[in-house]
Write a protein that binds this DNA or RNA. Structure first.
Length: 186
DNA sequence: AGCGGGATTTTCT
DNA sequence: GAAAATCCCGCTT
């Protein structure tokens, strides 16, 4: 397990930028870089964990480095990296990825080329075939592994308000790599 | 380029 | 029974 994942989500979210995800599909692997994240904490009104532990959010309160997958709007999955210490309900939403190699494997799940393939939280879950089956999966293991990379320089990281939520809109908890073409929205 | 609605199901009130 | 950490399409400027 990557030790710094036990830090608060607000610290982990920018630290995850530039790190890699390795997804195994049909015995082959796709390598992708994390380029956009959002932090969610237990004290945050917009977080699923704000109202305490429930059946749905129990993974968020569990061990850091696992995957929290939720279903929303009747048709979409989104995925998070669980952060913080055991018992803390915090996580980081993965909002956009840049495919580095093996991108053609994604075609059968999301047959859209270019940046449109993975530049949104529900899009990347569709492209990587991430569903409820992977809820609670450890990111230290295949078929979905998180690979640590050196931290980015802070002047490469943009910090702004989050997207797609109705509560706590103004909290600057969204992070992305400066001028990166795969970011979901400027 | 920007706005508005529909899809569709899980979760909590 | 309503809202939701979204996306896509079609209509209007």
């Amino acid at each position: 397990m990557i030790s710094w994942l036990t830090q608060p989500s607000e610290e982990v979210a920018p630290r995850l930028l530039g790190c890699l995800l390795e997804r195994t599909l049909e015995g082959k692997t796709v390598l992708l870089k994390i380029v956009e994240t959002e932090a969610y904490a237990e004290t945050d009104e917009a977080s699923h964990s704000f109202k305490g532990k429930t059946n749905r959010t129990s993974i968020m309160f569990g061990e850091a480095g696992h995957l929290y997958v939720y279903f929303t709007y009747g048709m979409h999955y989104c995925c998070n990296v669980v952060t913080g210490r055991n018992g803390e309900g915090s996580a980081v939403l993965i909002r956009a990825l840049e495919p580095l190699s093996g991108e053609e494997l994604l075609d059968q799940y999301r047959p859209v080329g270019g940046v449109q393939r993975t530049n949104g939280p529900a899009k990347l879950c569709q492209a990587l075939n991430i569903t409820a089956e992977l809820n609670g999966h450890s990111l230290a293991e295949p078929p979905l592994r998180l690979i640590e990379q050196p931290p980015l320089h802070h002047d490469e990281i943009i910090r702004t308000s989050r997207i797609g939520i109705s509560k706590a809109k103004d909290a600057p908890l969204r992070f992305y790599i400066k001028a990166h073409p795969y970011v979901s929205k400027l």
